[in-house]
Design a protein around this nucleic acid. Structure first.
Lengths: 105, 105
DNA sequence: AATAGTGGTAACCTAAAAGTGACTAATGGA
DNA sequence: TCCATTAGTCACTTTTAGGTTACCACTATT
């Protein structure tokens, strides 16, 4: 018989965990078009609160998908951008979207 | 400026919602190898409880990924199988796993 | 009369994620 | 003097997914 299975070992699970958060895909999409300041992201995703946006950005940063650059100015100025690793995700996301168009519409 | 973005419109979000549940990938994996009865799935994924297995199966069925065939016997006998739509997902999952191997290891 | 076998349900609990609203630091400008 | 600005934090509540345990129907077998 097959071995017992455990989802912790699943490479698909591990991969979608990178961008599976409630707002992460949208954030990645926004940053894929341009480096953006915190407030610029908020304007483009108005339904997200500051707290949650901060959390999602921190997680994306921790996973190496985006970078955070803080300029020591006042008022504060922080720029977020995709890292190379983050950019490497884009073709995969495009594949997923293409699968949807083909199989669901 | 770009339109406001809402994650409900995101094709990637819609797609991963199909298999993003806690145990769905594992269930799909099990069924990709063979049609299985409820109890056979349980044995292969021992960490999942009956209640949650039932829930996940119902959702997969509602999304059209698997089929449920009940034989009117006693004791009960129910067989779950991938639908064609469910099978169409496999190449995509393989792509995602391949991306992981290439970009993460 | 009791038990095993199968595919569930019902009632309840818990932890994590997400959401809300008020608040802050530090400066320039009116 | 007071406000605007920016990128947050803090304390709190709500929502949701998932988990636990007990129980059920119906028959064949012992």
């Amino acid at each position: 018989m097959e071995n017992e299975l455990d989802h912790a070992d699943c490479p698909v699970t591990a991969t979608i965990a990178l961008f599976g958060g409630r707002w992460k895909l949208l954030i990645l999409y926004v940053l894929s078009r341009n480096t953006r300041r915190f407030g610029e992201i908020q304007v483009r995703i108005p339904a997200i609160s500051k707290k949650v946006l901060t959390e999602q950005l921190r997680e994306l940063e921790a996973d190496g998908l985006i970078s955070r650059k803080e300029y020591k100015e006042l008022p504060p100025r922080v720029e977020y951008a995709l890292t190379d690793f983050g950019k490497s995700l884009c073709p995969l996301l495009i594949d997923i979207a293409a699968w949807k168009r083909k199989n669901i519409g």
